[in-house]
Computed example of a mutant assay.
Amino acid sequence: MTGHVYRVGVVGCGTMGAGIAEVSLRAGLDVRVLVSAPDRTEAAERRIAAGFERAVAKGRMTPQEHEAAAGRLRITADIADLADRQLVVEAVAEKLDVKCRVFKALDAQLADPAAVLASTTSSLLVNDLAGTTSRPQSVVGLHFFNPVPSMPLVEVVLTDRTSAGSAAAAEAFVADALGKEVIRTRDRCGFVVNALLVPYLMAAVRMYEQGVAGAEDIDRGMTLGCGYPMGPLALLDMVGIDTFTAVAQGMRENGPDLITEVPPLLTRMVREGRLGRKTGHGFYQYDQAS
């Protein structure tokens, strides 16, 4: 692909999908968000609107900019509406079979053979997704971080089949259009950030599980002793215990040299609905889900 990306598609409107749509709209791009069913469109609209409202409240966006951005958004349940997109970001569940189905469907729909297909996966191999398409040279990973509007980094993941043009278009979208920092990484389990972060977080979970120290003391140890802005267990609550567990399990399957075992406590917390801030209870209790 040559030139700038103006027409962006986002598949999925959960936390990551909504965040990517929000920053793309704020960058002045034309955005279409694909949801799984027509009855999901209103919830998607509310989620993205809530992000705009927070930005306005914090003085990061004017009401007029909010209105203009909303006018560039279309939410649809019909994948054919993504046919003219120059770049599509997949942001669905962290499950290989689910993502592969999305990539196959997008491959069949996108009219431009050079349109970039990107995945937000944080634990799966991008090459496995590329292999389900007829255009593996156009497939990249774009690993955004949560919350997308405030986190400055995106990992751009390139497979051995990604073309120079697709790599350049993806990096220009992230850096020039969205104004975020880029680190380029090859396609390996966990890429750069999660290959370092996930083992650290799981060590904190094991420490808590074994009764070595309480949650507050573990977190204070890392914030006060190492200068980290947030302790590991508080970070897990913010990310979501279910989200992190899915990432850890994916890394266990794809990179057993990095992850040997997922702590049983995590799967138990998911089963009990203790997912962190979004349910009001994780390693800490919260006044309300957020």
Rank of each mutant, 00 (worst) to 15 (best):
A44M: 13
E45Q: 13
R46W: 00
R46H: 07
R46T: 03
R47P: 00
R47Y: 00
R47N: 02
R47H: 03
R47A: 05
I48G: 05
I48T: 11
A49E: 15
A49L: 15
A49R: 15
A49P: 11
A50P: 12
A50F: 04
G51S: 03
G51T: 02
F52G: 09
F52I: 06
F52A: 07
E53I: 00
E53G: 01
E53K: 14
R54W: 00
R54Y: 00
R54Q: 07
R54M: 01
A55N: 11
A55C: 07
A55K: 10
V56R: 12
A57L: 12
K58P: 03
K58E: 13
G59Q: 08
G59W: 10
R60C: 01
R60A: 10
R60K: 14
M61P: 08
M61Q: 15
M61R: 10
T62F: 10
T62R: 08
T62I: 02
T62K: 09
T62P: 06
P63C: 11
E65D: 14
E65F: 12
E65Y: 11
H66A: 06
H66E: 14
E67W: 05
E67L: 13
E67G: 09
A68F: 06
A68R: 15
A68Y: 05
A69D: 09
A69F: 03
A69N: 12
A70P: 08
G71K: 13
G71Y: 10
G71T: 06
R72H: 12
R72F: 02
R72I: 04
R72C: 07
L73V: 01
L73D: 05
L73Y: 09
R74L: 08
I75P: 08
I75S: 05
T76F: 04
A77F: 08
D78E: 12
D78F: 13
I79K: 04
A80V: 14
A80Q: 07
L82Y: 10
L82C: 11
A83L: 06
D84N: 03
D84W: 08
R85V: 00
R85G: 00
R85F: 00
R85P: 00
Q86L: 11
Q86F: 10
Q86Y: 06
Q86D: 06
L87Q: 04
L87Y: 04
V88R: 03
V88G: 02
V89M: 13
V89I: 14
E90T: 06
E90G: 05
E90F: 05
E90R: 04
A91C: 14
A91V: 13
V92T: 15
V92I: 07
A93C: 09
A93S: 15
E94L: 02
E94S: 05
L96Y: 05
L96S: 02
D97W: 10
V98T: 11
V98N: 04
K99E: 01
K99S: 01
K99W: 02
K99H: 03
C100Q: 15
F103R: 10
F103N: 04
F103C: 03
K104D: 01
